[in-house]
Design a binder for these strands. Structure first.
Lengths: 215, 215
DNA sequence: TGATGTGAAGAACTTCACAGCA
DNA sequence: TGCTGTGAAGTTCTTCACATCA
């Protein structure tokens, strides 16, 4: 239970949790690894392995008790506490993310936007998130107890911004800028590279996605 | 050279290409797998393996000729042709993506937005992308030769929208909605799940990102 | 009986180490 | 000599198969 848990397992835990939310809302009492597997097109053993990292969460012969597993997953994922998020970069993407309803749903709160442009600073996003000057990041981060930063700035300024964020003591970053960024080992950086995603699609189109599957 | 190439390899090819663009702009003649490896914090052998899937692209004792490798990668990734992209969902996120400069850079052209709301249809995004009625998807897709669709709609409508896109003959989808979506085997679906990404960060915060690295 | 938890087998991916060639 | 291309070894992740237990 104290071992390393892989990134892949972690990501799947999120998916399981989302499904458990639905099941609980629907009043379902228990769920088996088989049902979870069917839902996500995964192997049932993989789901049991994923969950077994965190103790014996299931009941033999029965499956997993929905309310219990849901609560446990929320705890494991750290969603049982307040998570204050900031978005750096009040451009189109930053604004869209600030108002993205999906974030709010699982308990994340977008508490601040940051930018450098004087005519943006002082304003608010549509949903009311205030825009601060990036120079105030450290102070605001402490005041608002921000633990996660979303970086949505142009590629050129990405590394500088990331450095600023790290200096402000924030240990978890979700980055939307392209390019290789460096962070200290105690900081967790997760990147969403939109260009890589599109190019991967282009590759599949170029190759032909319908070539015969492995023999 | 005709074998299966893994998703992971494909994604890295995009990164290599981006770096080669910089090198070519800087007038650099050749680059070794070692230099590429240092840049991306990868093993040099991995880079050689990635590239060797596509023939003998390098020169022993020298490395890779920048202009040649760049051109070859663009070809492999299917970027040597026009790639017309549509965005389904003219909400905050859809608009932000439509105007995202990173897409245009590598030759992707956002040619259309789609939505269902009558007061959005007929308008244009800031950068001038016209918004169509989703019911016209099939016609517009053919007219504009759209090969890639970006899905940025609320979770509830995602599967319906994906079905519509598939019916319109589009074989490559980049999806931003949460949840498990189904597509036929000849369609390539790539999903960016923002909630999963944030929850993965939350997990690392909860566990402590600075626990001792593997012994 | 039915579904979990898990050691062992298998598959996929990465790194090592070196032959081979400019 | 220097760097690629690649078989073999190593590592990580997934699936199989079954003992175990409610």
């Amino acid at each position: 239970m104290a071992e390393q848990v892989s990134e892949q397992t972690t990501n799947r835990l999120s998916l399981y949790l989302r499904f458990l939310n639905e099941l609980e809302a629907g009043g379902v009492r228990t769920v088996s690894s088989k049902v979870l597997a069917a839902r996500f097109d995964l192997n049932a053993a993989l789901i049991r392995k994923d969950l077994s990292h965190f103790g014996d969460l299931g009941v033999r012969g029965v499956g997993y008790v929905v309310v219990d597993l849901r609560q446990r997953l929320r705890q494991i994922l750290g969603l049982d506490r307040r998570l204050n998020v900031t978005i750096i970069g009040a451009g189109n993407l930053g604004f869209a993310l600030a108002d993205y309803p999906g974030f709010r749903k699982e308990g994340f709160r977008i508490v601040a936007l940051f930018d450098t442009l004087p005519d943006k600073v002082g304003r608010r996003s549509r949903s009311g998130v205030p825009i601060h000057d990036i120079r105030d990041l450290k102070r605001v981060a402490r005041q608002e107890q921000i633990t996660i930063a979303v970086v949505a700035v142009p590629a050129e300024s990405a590394q500088v911004v990331v450095n600023t964020v790290v200096e402000a003591g924030i240990k978890a970053l979700l980055n939307f800028s392209p390019g290789a960024l460096r962070v200290p080992p105690d900081v967790k950086l997760k990147s969403v590279d939109l260009t890589v995603s599109l190019e991967s699609l282009s590759f599949h189109l170029a190759r032909g996605v319908d070539r015969p599957p492995r023999p």
